[in-house]
Design a protein around this nucleic acid. Structure first.
Length: 259
DNA sequence: ATGCCTGGGTATCCCAGA
């Protein structure tokens, strides 16, 4: 089975590239983030023509997540257990589904904006709810993984220049502790290989030639339980998708499994 | 070449992204 995660930065704007990529990469399951469209506006018919069923969860302008599967999709759950709200609103940032016996979650962790900001506190509360959902759903009986844009660089090696990240989100101790808590809950970081250079970055800002300079960050992660991680045969970042006109600022992470 | 932001909506500026 091939499972991928990709922050597409608007599924509407990215649709031509998404469809072409589905045809070339041939993933069985795809976790999408930043749909920027409402559930009803998701391009389900277009992906169905390529053999994919879709479960989407979006409210429009911001956020939005989905799972595509060509091996079946069951037990869809929208939102985390005991999910926090931001400014009194629940945001579409998590969706779970079972695809051919594998339980996957597609997550778009809040950005945080800056340490001390209310959005940062929300990010940490949201990650606590993710932990609770992981504990509730990962029983070891079936392969389980959380895939998506975590908006956290796990180590200093996961950003191009850590000296530029003082007083910044994505690298703080509290955010990294939230990842450590997920590892303590039985998940492990499935580290992809890079197709070029030495670091498997997954995000490069649109500005200041970040991609040509390889000023990237590894923030799109695959956190998998033992059954899932133990069946991984390969994992890579498809940086080709960051190239050219009409690219997302994130590249897909692709994982191959024996299950 | 991979090339100096992009997407979407309250729209022709503003907010968010990381």
């Amino acid at each position: 089975m091939r499972i991928a995660t990709w922050n597409v930065n608007s599924v509407t704007a990215r649709l031509p590239r998404l469809l072409a990529w589905l045809e070339s990469a041939k993933p069985d399951v795809v976790c999408l983030q930043e749909l920027k469209c409402a559930t009803d506006a998701f391009p389900g018919e277009q992906v169905a023509e390529l053999g994919y069923e879709a479960a989407a969860y979006g409210t429009g302008r911001w956020n939005g997540v989905a799972i595509l599967s060509r091996v079946g999709i069951e037990d869809v759950r929208r939102g985390l257990i005991d999910e926090p709200v931001y400014e009194d609103a629940s945001e579409p940032r998590a969706i779970g589904a079972t695809c051919d016996g594998v339980r996957v979650w597609s997550v778009y962790v809040p950005n945080g904006r800056e340490p001390g900001h209310e959005h940062y506190a929300y990010k940490l509360r949201w990650l606590e709810a993710l932990r609770g959902t992981v504990i509730s759903e990962s029983d070891g009986a079936r392969p389980f993984a959380v895939l998506g844009d975590f908006n956290i660089a796990p180590t200093d090696e996961d950003v191009w220049d850590i000296s530029l990240f003082t007083e910044s989100t994505h690298v703080t101790d509290a955010e990294r502790k939230a990842l450590a808590v997920l590892r303590e809950a039985g998940l492990s970081d499935v580290l992809p290989r890079a197709l070029k250079y030495d670091k498997p970055y997954t995000y490069w800002d649109y500005r200041q030639l970040a991609f040509p300079k390889n000023n990237g960050m590894r923030i799109d992660l695959v956190y998998a339980d033992a059954k899932f991680a133990g069946s991984v045969t390969d994992a890579y970042v498809d940086r080709e998708e960051r190239k050219g006109k009409g690219a997302s600022d994130h590249a897909p992470v692709v994982v191959d499994l024996t299950v």
